[in-house]
C-alpha cells in the first residue's frame, strides 16, 4: 500500500516536471507538443478513492498551468478525463473491468490502445477549445487536437510499455 502511494507521488512530480521543462519546448513543426502528464491519470490505480483521485488530477493540471501561464485550461481538461475515466474504462475493457479483476499492465494491447486514445483525444479537445476559446476558429482546435493527440498517444504507449514492470 505504502509502495503504491509513494509511486504515485513520485509519478506526479516527475511527470509534471517533464511536461513543463521538456515536452512543452518540443514545438514539433511549430506547435505540436505532447501532453504526457495525463499518464498519471491513465495509470492511477483502479481501486481508488474517487474524490481524492479527481482532486489530485485537478492539482496536477493546475501545477502544469502554473508553469505555463495558461490560466486553468490544463486543470479543466485533466479534471474532466479523471471524472470520465470509469465510463471510458468500461467502454474499452468491458466485462473485465466490471469484475474488478484486471490490472492495467496486464491487458491486451488493443483495448489498452483504445483506452489511452479516448482519454487523450478527450483531454486535448477540452484543452485546445479552452485555450483558443473562440467558436469561429474551430478548425484550428481540431487541427491542434489531431496532431498533438497522435504525438501524445505514441509517447504514452511507449512510456507505459517501457516503465511497466512484469507482474506475474
Amino acid at each position: 500500500m505504502n509502495n503504491v502511494v509513494s509511486l504515485n507521488i513520485f509519478r506526479f512530480i516527475i511527470l509534471a516536471l517533464t511536461q513543463v521543462l521538456i515536452c512543452n519546448h518540443i514545438n514539433f513543426l511549430g506547435y505540436i507538443n505532447p501532453y504526457i502528464y495525463i499518464l498519471f491519470i491513465i495509470l492511477y490505480p483502479l481501486k481508488n478513492n474517487r474524490m481524492l483521485f479527481i482532486f489530485l488530477s485537478f492539482l496536477l493540471g493546475l501545477t502544469v498551468d502554473l508553469f505555463l501561464d495558461s490560466g486553468g485550461i490544463n486543470a479543466a481538461a485533466a479534471l474532466s478525463i479523471a471524472y470520465a475515466r470509469p465510463v471510458i474504462l468500461k467502454f474499452s475493457f468491458g466485462m473485465q473491468y466490471e469484475h474488478q479483476t484486471m490490472k492495467l499492465n496486464a491487458v491486451e494491447f488493443g483495448s489498452k490502445f483504445t483506452y489511452i486514445a479516448i482519454m487523450t483525444i478527450l483531454h486535448h479537445i477540452i484543452l485546445f477549445s479552452l485555450e483558443i476559446f473562440s467558436a469561429s476558429r474551430i478548425l484550428l482546435v481540431l487541427q491542434k487536437t489531431l496532431f498533438s493527440s497522435i504525438f501524445t498517444i505514441i509517447l504514452c504507449l511507449l512510456l507505459s510499455v517501457i516503465f511497466s514492470r512484469e507482474n506475474k
Binding site: F58, D65, F67, L68, D69, G71, G72, I73
Partner: peptide, 28 residues
Amino acid sequence: LLFLLLFSISILFTIQSHSYHKSKFINS
C-alpha cells in the same frame, strides 16, 4: 459536485487569464 466545483474554478482561472492583467494566482 466536487467535479463541478473544481471545474468552475478552472474555468474561472481560464477566463481571468484571457483578460489583461487579471491572472492573479496562476502565473509563472
